[in-house]
Design a protein around this nucleic acid. Structure first.
Lengths: 254, 254
DNA sequence: GAGTGGTCTAGACCACGAG
DNA sequence: TCGTGGTCTAGACCACTCG
């Protein structure tokens, strides 16, 4: 029930509701310290386990962080980075480093990234979207992107090895002014791209790379790039859900 | 650490890791019954609280459901409904009921929806995106959409009252063949639309309406529709994250 | 009716980090 | 050093649901 009846709701739910109200009303502002477990035990006259159930619930909802040592728990901040996508000519292009940097700087953030190159067999997603046999060799450009010093998103691009073996794509540095432009300059024009956007709770591996706490979902954008009629490469972007939104600016269809 | 060291990882983490491995490897298939708390206490020689910590963690990750009565816990299913967005002429249009029904039927689902009409002051999001004073009266078309009998998504459209007061928009039924087309037939052509896609853990209210368990994030798509140069109305769509993905099919930009 | 998970308590020890 | 949260135990009662 949305409106909590005091009668039969579990104690830990009531406690969670009380704290949630304080957070959404702003009495507990982002960054503020949540009362300690001891304080909550005293003020609500419940056991520590009950307090912890309530706090775990709020953590799973992404409202508060876990607490370490004497620091205590804190109400999560929530200021969104915007990723713009627009099929109009000349628009910024996600996945090209200079645009990533330019766009984030214009939003007042300090971006940076680490690039690794790897070779491996095509994972299932890649083989399926690029229409490749499962044992095809692919080059992966793994990028871990930082905003204001904190890891914030992962962008992994998968290219068939045969397509890129003698190109700058296999070099572990930035590609100026971007992969799409590089191919265009070499006569292979991008005809279309398809974005699949979804969300889920992070795998432990992603949670580790992005240093995610409990209760933070990820936004996933799988982009398949087409050169001519055929899918050419795939970029898988994993974004911290509490820090990003993707904006598509599209022309009217009729 | 991605690779779990058996040495100092908490017991409940080890238990969670073990179960997570069984799930991702397929030994515990979607829909399968998770071992009972008693069984896990016995096989892993830990207390019930420890078992529950592990199971809560997996629930928060969206891997298993909560268990009720003798039914036990179950590994979550994950078959995605695809929502197509394409700015090409004649493409299906999200938010128009017949397309919603047609598209989902073609994917093998049984869709339906409940429509309610309400009048209220513009919420902050709406006032901001539509460039309206905060106290503007708006008409809200609230749609709760069901797939195979289960509530699956919410689609609420906000229209300035003055714009739609004598139109079918204020009628609590389907608008054939859709709102965009209706306006186009009356001389007001949609020039563009802007989608803001984000994710978060559901508010308790959304969780209740969509009957969401722990660990299921929602995908949010806020679409601002433009007629001529000006924003005209806004549709806010809240999708169960474990059941949906949105696919944007876009033309190459250069 | 029997077994499941949901809720709750009262304790204990430990690692970590701010003062 | 001292308080915080992290981890863990043993036990209790209840509501629900399946057979």
């Amino acid at each position: 029930m949305p409106a909590a009846a005091t009668g039969d709701t579990p104690l830990y739910q009531e406690l969670a509701d009380a704290l949630r109200t304080q957070i959404s009303s702003g009495r507990l502002a982002p960054g503020a310290r949540v009362p300690t477990e001891h304080e909550l035990m005293a003020t609500h006259d419940v056991s520590r386990s009950t307090v912890r159930l309530a706090l775990n619930l709020l953590a799973a909802e992404g409202l508060i962080t876990a607490g370490r040592g004497r620091a205590g728990r804190v109400v999560r901040r929530r200021d969104l980075i915007t990723i713009h996508v627009s099929p109009q000519p000349g628009a910024p292009r996600l996945g090209e480093i200079d645009e990533f940097v330019t766009e984030l700087r214009s939003q007042g953030f300090a971006p940076s990234q680490k690039i690794e190159i790897a070779m491996q067999r095509a994972p299932e997603l890649v083989a399926d979207r690029l229409d490749l046999p499962g044992d095809t060799l692919v080059v992966v450009r793994r990028r871990l992107r930082f905003v204001d010093g904190a890891p914030c998103s992962i962008a992994d691009s998968y290219f068939p090895y045969e397509m890129v073996k003698d190109t700058p794509v296999v070099q572990p540095g930035d590609i100026q002014p971007g992969v799409v432009s590089w191919f265009a300059e070499h006569g292979r024009v991008q005809s279309r791209y398809v974005d699949e956007v979804s969300t889920k709770m992070p795998e432990p591996d992603d949670a580790y790379r992005l240093q995610l706490g409990q209760g933070v979902p990820v936004l996933i954008q799988n982009r398949t790039h087409y050169l001519g009629d055929a899918p050419a490469w795939l970029t898988r972007i994993v974004l911290r859900g509490d820090r990003h939104r993707i904006v598509y600016d599209l022309p009217g269809a009729r």
